[in-house]
Amino acid sequence: MIAQSSESPSKVWFEEPDTVFVTLNGYIDATAGARTLRAQNACTEGRPYVIVVCDVQRATGMSGEARRQLINNSQGAQARGVVIVGGSYPIRTIASMIFRAATLLGVPLLPFRFANNLAEARALLPELRRALRAVV
């Protein structure tokens, strides 16, 4: 089953059993970031956790406020793993820094991976699920 939300200019959808896909488009400011998070939270409501696959290939940037919203998101299902699709070396570096910086705010470091495309991201999902089962 695929549940999708169209509230956000970015595309957000959920696929069973535990994965929310987010495709970011253009520059993500605080308003676009809030809309994307609302769409993500709507897709994952009532679930104990999710793995997030975030495609940044068409993203051109993200404001500091949008990054803070992402880190401080307490609504919807708890993200337990993340796969970032696409992105240049600087984007991958910034994403790694965001995940590590979140630990300073008390957010546990999530297992995260990088993929070049959606097919590669999907191939990483079983590995993340195994890692999550080992922790839980």
Rank of each mutant, 00 (worst) to 15 (best):
M1C: 10
M1E: 11
I2C: 10
I2V: 13
I2G: 01
A3H: 13
A3T: 15
P9C: 02
P9V: 10
S10A: 13
S10M: 14
W13K: 06
F14D: 00
F14E: 07
E15M: 03
E15G: 02
E15D: 03
P17N: 15
F21A: 02
T23M: 14
L24G: 09
N25A: 12
N25P: 07
G26K: 07
G26N: 08
I28D: 09
T31W: 07
A32F: 01
G33F: 05
A34W: 04
R35A: 15
T36G: 06
T36A: 13
L37G: 05
R38S: 11
Q40P: 00
N41K: 01
N41A: 02
A42D: 08
C43W: 04
C43V: 01
T44E: 07
G46M: 03
G46I: 11
R47L: 14
P48Q: 10
Y49F: 14
Y49S: 08
I51L: 12
I51A: 03
V52R: 11
V53H: 00
V53F: 05
V56R: 02
V56F: 05
V56K: 02
Q57C: 10
Q57N: 14
R58M: 14
R58T: 04
R58V: 02
A59E: 09
A59M: 12
T60A: 01
G61I: 00
G61N: 04
G61W: 01
G61V: 01
G61A: 01
M62E: 05
M62C: 10
M62Q: 02
S63M: 00
S63W: 04
G64T: 02
G64N: 06
A66Y: 07
A66I: 08
R67P: 07
R67I: 10
R67Q: 03
Q69H: 14
Q69S: 15
Q69V: 15
L70I: 10
L70W: 09
L70C: 06
L70S: 11
I71A: 00
I71V: 06
N73M: 07
S74C: 14
S74M: 09
G81M: 01
V82M: 14
V83S: 06
I84P: 06
I84A: 00
V85H: 04
G86T: 05
G87S: 11
S88T: 13
Y89K: 07
P90N: 07
I91F: 12
R92G: 03
T93W: 09
I94N: 05
A95L: 05
A95F: 03
M97F: 13
I98K: 04
F99K: 00
R100V: 08
A101D: 10
L104N: 14
L104V: 08
L105P: 07
L105V: 13
P108A: 11
L109T: 00
L110K: 09
L110P: 02
L110T: 02
P111H: 10
P111Q: 10
F112Q: 03
F112W: 05
R113P: 04
N116G: 12
A123W: 03
L125W: 02
L125R: 05
P126T: 12
R130L: 04
R130Y: 02
A131H: 00
R133F: 13
R133Y: 15
R133H: 15
V135F: 08
V135Y: 12
V135G: 09
